[in-house]
Nucleic acid binder design. Structure first.
Lengths: 112, 112
DNA sequence: TTAATATACATAATTTTCTTATGTATTTAT
DNA sequence: ATAAATACATAAGAAAATTATGTATATTAA
């Protein structure tokens, strides 16, 4: 796990990117996907995730669909066209940011 | 300029790395150095910078030396040995974080 | 020459964003 | 049966930034 401060500011970008690649995902699924893909290095907390998902829905960036699975409800989120545009912008901005930070900190990133 | 949320959490790393490379720098100098090195893409704000410098000093990570230049005072900050170790750890963590994010977001960073 | 900009520090109020804690409830594994 | 995992949600508090404000000197441009 990284010191929490590093991860700050990347939550929206992560959510939007994953929802750009998968037509629908639910909250818990997002937490597991991120945990798996990062070897546990990034773990989304519910207290941060759910309010952010709600906010993105209120802004029209995501839409929801509640599904009953067994006896439990599962709330699927899907990205809207405008959300897809925002996702792309956010990813581009983050890519640029990384390049800038590599220069500024004189990093030698080990790219697999 | 990046959306502010992205830069969050990187301030300490930036300060400590620059002070690892330069034996002493003052606050305003740090703002200008970062602005120059990033082509204006990252601009440290005084409201964030000064409280952070004070905190790092209180933690024994930085030491200060006030110098009179003309009629104005300039407060130079220098990194301590323990601070140098923390700087190195922070830079390593950030490098690892970048690698993780590149994987997670499937980025193709354009490395000069 | 005077007005604006740059240099140089500092702090307070507010906002944003996250963590931590708490709550409910079902399902699966031990 | 009990614990852990699945699945949602929200509220209180902390952390870290932004924005605004304040003081003061030095330099540049009108």
């Amino acid at each position: 796990m990284y010191s929490s401060e590093l991860i700050k500011g990347t939550l929206k970008t992560i959510i939007l990117k994953l929802l750009s690649e998968n037509e629908k995902m639910y909250g818990y699924e997002l937490t597991q996907k991120v945990k798996d893909m990062t070897g546990g290095k990034i773990q989304l907390t519910e207290g941060a995730l759910y309010p952010t998902l709600h906010a993105l829905e209120n802004q029209g960036i995501l839409t929801t669909e509640v599904v009953n699975v067994g006896n439990r409800l599962r709330k699927y989120y899907a990205i809207t066209p405008s959300g897809r545009k925002i996702a792309s912008e956010k990813v581009n901005e983050f890519t640029d940011f990384i390049a800038t930070m590599i220069t500024l900190l004189d990093l030698k990133p080990n790219l697999g």
